[in-house]
């Protein structure tokens, strides 16, 4: 873990990556679960037409989706599409559907601000808003970056993913310059890291050399994460040693990205959470 200090007061976090399959949705779900165990009101915005986060969060019904919200784009209209998730606790969802792909083609000069407009007055109702982006830097990701105040680049220790992380960071910089000056690069998190693999060790070293303090840490590759997703429950409620390790890593990441404010702590009685641990620089997760 680097020595970068946590950024206080951050609420809307976009998880993005140019490359697919690096685990953006897994990271978003892990962070949402970690926030839920702290009883923080969390909204997951599924901006991926694959709708994997929507499937894993298992809402009872989803009459409207992000596609309808972006098509309408009136200020605050997102509140009409948000539904409670099927997870126990305080996680809500702005669901996705495959028709969201149509919105990716609706590019116009002010189209990138549709999500931000739709979330006006809505994001304030939540302690944390997590946006799951599609694996591209197109119109949907632009909408996410315009609405977010923190961009989390998800990568994995592989040759292609390291290059994609660089491009994602460049995209964050561009959006910051042209449209959302409050957007900050929250950092890069390496997902599915196996410290026993020489290739992963090499790529992690490469990531640290290239991005330095922006590397937030490494999330261990644990099958419990996929098992919990398959059962539509948070990994925090999965009973296994691997799940506990994953939970600790997600807790630590959440602490870095969105530390709890004093008002949040005093407002709610908090359930005891596992003690956060430092994510080892080169593994330690077995």
């Amino acid at each position: 873990m680097s020595s970068q200090s946590p950024i206080p007061g951050r609420r809307v976090i976009a998880a993005l990556s140019l490359k697919g399959g690096v685990g953006k949705t897994s990271v978003v779900l892990g962070l949402a679960g970690a926030a839920a165990t702290q009883r923080r009101r969390t909204l997951v915005v599924d901006l991926d037409p694959q709708a994997n986060a929507t499937a894993a969060l298992d809402p009872r019904e989803a009459p409207f989706t992000a596609s309808d919200v972006l098509f309408d784009a009136r200020p605050g209209i997102a509140s009409e599409a948000i539904v409670p998730s099927g997870w126990p606790g305080t996680v809500s969802l702005l669901p996705s559907e495959r028709a969201l792909e149509h919105r990716a083609g609706d590019a116009s000069p002010d189209s990138a601000g549709r999500l931000r407009r739709a979330l006006e007055g809505v994001a304030e109702d939540y302690d944390l808003v997590l946006i799951d982006c599609p694996p591209s830097l197109g119109e949907l990701t632009r909408n996410a970056l315009f609405a977010a105040d923190l961009a989390l680049v998800v990568t994995e220790p592989s040759f292609f993913a390291v290059a994609a992380a660089q491009q994602a960071l460049e995209a964050v910089g561009l959006v910051r310059e042209h449209g959302n000056p409050s957007l900050q690069a929250g950092g890069i998190v390496a997902n599915r890291v196996r410290p026993t693999l020489p290739e992963h060790v090499f790529r992690m070293d490469e990531l640290r050399a290239a991005f330095g303090g922006l590397i937030l840490g490494a999330l261990p590759d644990r099958s419990a994460v996929q098992q919990a997703q398959g059962a539509c429950v948070p990994v925090q409620s999965w009973q296994s040693h691997g799940a506990k390790e994953a939970c600790l890593a997600f807790d630590a990441l959440l602490k870095r990205l969105a530390p709890r404010t004093g008002s949040e702590m005093s407002a709610r009685s908090v359930t005891p959470t596992p003690k956060s641990v430092e994510i080892p620089a080169q593994g330690g997760a077995s």
């Binding site: 037409p49 409207f64 989706t65 596609s67 309808d68 919200v69 098509f71 309408d72 009136r74 209209i77 009409e80 599409a81 559907e97 495959r98 028709a99 792909e101 149509h102 919105r103 083609g105």
Partner: peptide, 18 residues
């Protein structure tokens, strides 16, 4: 304020020619 409605292309599969 009119309520949120389904987008007119909600039923169209993105794989179809546009």
């Amino acid at each position: 304020r009119p309520a949120l409605r389904k987008a007119p292309d909600a039923h169209i599969h993105p794989a179809l020619a546009l």
